[in-house]
Every structure is written in C-alpha cells, then in structure tokens.
Amino acid sequence: MKIIEVNHLSYKYNEKDVAINDVSFSIDEGKYVAIIGHNGSGKSTFAKLLMGLLEPNENSIKEFGIDLNRKTVHELRSRMGIVFQNPDNQFVGATVRDDLAFGLENRCIKREDMDSIINEYAEKVNMVEFLDKEPENLSGGQKQRVAIAGVLSMNPEIVIFDEATAMLDPRGKKEIRETILKMKKDNPGMTILSITHDIEEAYQADEVIAFNDGKIVFQGKPEDVLKDEKKLQEIGLDIPFVVSLRNKLEAKGINVRGSSLEEVVKEL
C-alpha cells in the first residue's frame, strides 16, 4: 500500500526562492526511506510540507490515502511524528518526564495512564534513569532520544527524522542510528523517512531518494544510488571514505559488505 503519495508538489518561500519544484513520487508502507541532498536542496522544506507545517499546493500530498489540506491536517498529523535537527529546540518540558508528558497532554491521555506510558517509552530509548533531569544536564544524543521517545509515545504510523543526527557528535550519531534501527525492528509496520546528509545512515535504508535544487535526482536502492560517486558529488554530497573504498574494491572485483569502517576492515 502506498502510504505517502506526492503529486506535482511545488513550494516557494517567495518568488525567487523556489524550495520544491514539481516533485512526484510515492512511498510504500513499512519502508525505511532515506532522503539525501545537500543543504538547501529542499529536503527539510519537504519534511515540513509532509507534516502540514507548511501549506502545500492543492491535492499534491496524500497520506494514508487522505488528501492533506487544512481540514485534515490535524487528523493526519496525529498519525505522524517528526524529530527535528536541533535537540534543544524541540524540548518543551522542564524535565524529560515533563517533555514526554507534553505530547500525551496534547492527546488528552488520562493523567493516571501517563506515568506508565512515560516509563514504557523512556525504557525503549534507554532514558529511564534521566527522567527527572533538566535538558541542560543532557547530551545532544540524549535529548534526541527523548524526542524520539516523545514521538513514539504517540504511536505514529509514519516517523520523519529531519537531520536528527546532524548536530550530534559521532557517539550521539551512533546512538541515534541504533535507536532508529531498534525502533524499526520493534515496529515493522512503521514507515520511516530519514532526511540526512549522512551517507552512512542512508545505507541502512530500504530506499534512497536524492534531492537537488528542489527536484528528485534519483530514487532507488541505496547500493545502486550510492555506487554512482560522480553523481553524488555532482549534487554536492560527500562520500564517506568507507563507501568510496568499498566502491573502488568492488570495481576491482572484491566484494565487501558492511557499512562501518570496522566492518569493512574485518571483512578484508
């Protein structure tokens, strides 16, 4: 089933600044899709359009088979969740516990049920011991994990990560990547859209969509898309050393699996 259908979607911030230019594609239910592209290629705008935070042109976005417009935006939004880039700017509560409660309050969940839900989802992202900590005492990765727990506690069918790892240190990045994979394993039916310019993360996905200048440059399996180094460089993306190494090895007839440097070295 196609869970997201985009038909001739365009969006401009003003006359000169066209962010999305006549984009059409669809995403199947339960897929993990990575959207890559350099800064300013329109991928974050795209995420906001999908969440209904920006208003798309008429009949251009269908989610769960329902057209996204002013009337349906609240209903559709309640079935989706998004994790943004800046860990600080999406932390609403005074403590982790309050932040998780914020989303539940919006959903009108009864107070008596909140504590068990908060504990359940904090456990899923390994944040139980930090429940009463203030955001200034948490690392970026921990704050992002709280954001993920906040999104998961709403039982969304689609989760969007809008460069959720971009502002984190390598350790935080790894934590979040692992959390996403675990989340995918726990909820096989969940559709995940990950907007990133971290090519290594794109490798984890089932499908990759590359954006450039508000247009889709290609869509396909990560192995196929990421093999084409020249094209990636053309749209302004860095190829990580490991990927580059692997591509070169493959060209010489040596097949290596694994996405991290350690794994590749091990294979060799």
């Binding site: 935070l53 609240h74 939004r77 989706m80 998004i82 999406q90 609403v92 919006n106 009108c108």
Partner: peptide, 26 residues
Amino acid sequence: QRAEELADSMEARGYNPKAKRTTYHK
C-alpha cells in the same frame, strides 16, 4: 529562530492551545 523551530515542533506534536488538553501535573 529557536522560537520558530520550537513552534514547529510543538505543533507537530499535536499542540493546539484552543483544543482541550489533559494535565500531567496535579
């Protein structure tokens, strides 16, 4: 900038000041 991002994130999490909400704190 922060305020804008925070507003986006609150809205994405279903916050609507006009709508009915429950309260966690008592």
